[in-house]
Simulated assay, not measured.
Amino acid sequence: MLRKAEHVLALLHSASARVVTAESCTGGLVAAALTHFPGSSDMTEGGLVTYSNTMKKNLLGVPEATLAEHGAVSEPTVLAMAHGALLAAPLARLSVSISGIAGPGGGSATKPVGLVWFAVADRVGGIARAESRIFSGSREQVRLQAADHALTMVADCLSALV
């Protein structure tokens, strides 16, 4: 994952862009990977760990109605998280958000353990996209796979810019 984070930082540098993270189930793993490298403060604006719905609502502006209707692990929620992160970090061009069920409990028939939703938003391009994945393995493995996929999404978005 650190190699991928280093690649993302290089792409951010090439695009003269900064990124902010809004993380739930990954608990700051993406921000930690990005800030592992010296000089990363030039490309990384920061990260928000919004594990609870209250934090998603209060720090990122996720509407209570979105959380009530769709739940924390949903496309509408991660899109709202990504937009909220951009509002919280006005110098960031890109945001990435993650919300999922890392397990071992907490899953359901419609939202199984391992389900993670992601979103990336681009302030300049005005685009946002969301996608979900279902990962397998232990809680730690799900969290690491989710953080890795979030970095992939950011890299894909940046590759279109540089």
Rank of each mutant, 00 (worst) to 15 (best):
K4R: 15
A130Y: 01
E75W: 01
C157K: 09
A32W: 00
N53T: 02
A85N: 07
Y51G: 08
V154I: 15
L48V: 12
S74Q: 03
P90D: 11
A5V: 00
G103R: 10
R133H: 13
L151R: 06
T54F: 09
L11P: 00
A72D: 02
S138F: 04
D122Q: 11
L48Y: 04
S24A: 10
Y51K: 07
A5F: 08
R18L: 14
R123F: 02
A22C: 08
V8S: 09
S132R: 13
V19N: 04
V30W: 10
A68N: 12
N53V: 05
R3P: 11
L144H: 11
K57A: 14
T152F: 11
G105L: 13
R143V: 03
S132L: 11
L48S: 06
A31E: 11
L48E: 02
A17F: 03
E140P: 00
A147T: 01
T50M: 02
A109H: 04
L12Q: 03
T152S: 14
T26K: 00
S138K: 07
S24L: 02
A32P: 00
V73Y: 06
A160F: 04
A146Q: 08
D148P: 00
P38L: 08
A85Q: 04
V124H: 13
T66D: 12
G61I: 06
V78K: 04
V154L: 15
L144V: 10
C25L: 10
P76R: 10
S99H: 04
A150V: 06
K111L: 09
A89D: 07
E75V: 07
T54M: 10
E131D: 11
T26W: 04
V113P: 11
L9C: 12
A155D: 05
V62L: 08
G106E: 05
F37P: 00
V120K: 09
S132M: 13
L34T: 00
T54Y: 09
R18N: 04
D42A: 15
T44F: 15
L94Q: 03
T152C: 14
D156Q: 14
A150Q: 05
H70T: 01
L115H: 05
F118I: 08
G107W: 09
L86N: 04
C157P: 00
F135W: 02
E6F: 08
G39Q: 05
H7V: 07
S136T: 11
L87W: 06
G39M: 06
L9G: 02
